[in-house]
């Protein structure tokens, strides 16, 4: 690839005195001073959250209020600042035991989280979602380490695309009542 050498235009005499450029600069700032401010007054005025915004990662439940997370720990593995810590556990409720696994605890250290969204991207169950919460704070370090309950509370409910709860259950029941297929 050819290298093209660009030479800076030599300064004119007026420019070299600095005075005129400085004056024009002063004019620009002065004009800005007269204009109305462009900022939002945050706590009263809230910014509009764009689509795909990466806020605080939260855990979501399916419309039937069942945990989507199966504690596969992929988010824990992929998390660059190691903000996630999952204690895996088994589902004891016999009705849903076919899903087998759910987190006993899901610890999300918001002091560490960098909002990269890799956890959301890696999640095979679409259980962790970065929603629109952008101001997460607390008075103690312990409080800002979010646990399972808090995360589900923040996350709410999202539609389930996996049907692991119902479709599997139906099939299992059919199989149990005899008959292959």
């Amino acid at each position: 690839m050819a290298i093209k050498v660009l030479h800076r235009k030599p300064l004119t005499l007026a420019e070299r005195t600095y005075i005129l450029p400085i004056l024009s600069g002063l004019r620009i700032t002065l004009r800005n001073m007269i204009k109305a401010p462009v900022t939002l007054e945050y706590p009263e005025e809230k910014p509009a959250i764009p689509k795909g915004y990466r806020g605080v990662p939260t855990l979501v439940k399916d419309p039937n209020g069942r945990e989507k997370c199966v504690s596969c720990q992929l988010c824990e593995f992929v998390c660059p600042p190691k903000a996630i810590r999952i204690t895996p556990g088994e589902i004891v409720d016999p009705a849903n035991a076919h899903v087998e696994k759910a987190p006993k605890d899901f610890e999300l250290n918001m002091l560490r989280c960098i909002y990269c969204g890799l956890c959301e991207e890696v999640c095979p169950e679409q259980a962790i979602v970065l929603q629109d919460i952008y101001s997460m704070n607390s008075e103690t370090r312990e409080e800002i380490v979010l646990h399972k309950d808090k995360l589900y509370e923040l996350g709410g409910t999202l539609p389930d695309a996996h049907f692991k709860w119902d479709k599997k259950k139906k099939a299992a029941d059919e199989a149990a009542h005899g008959g292959h297929h």
């Binding site: 720990q73 824990e76 556990g89 088994e90 087998e100």
Partner: peptide, 9 residues
Amino acid sequence: FRFKMRVWF
């Protein structure tokens, strides 16, 4: 070992 920990950790 069941459900205790993922092996990659």
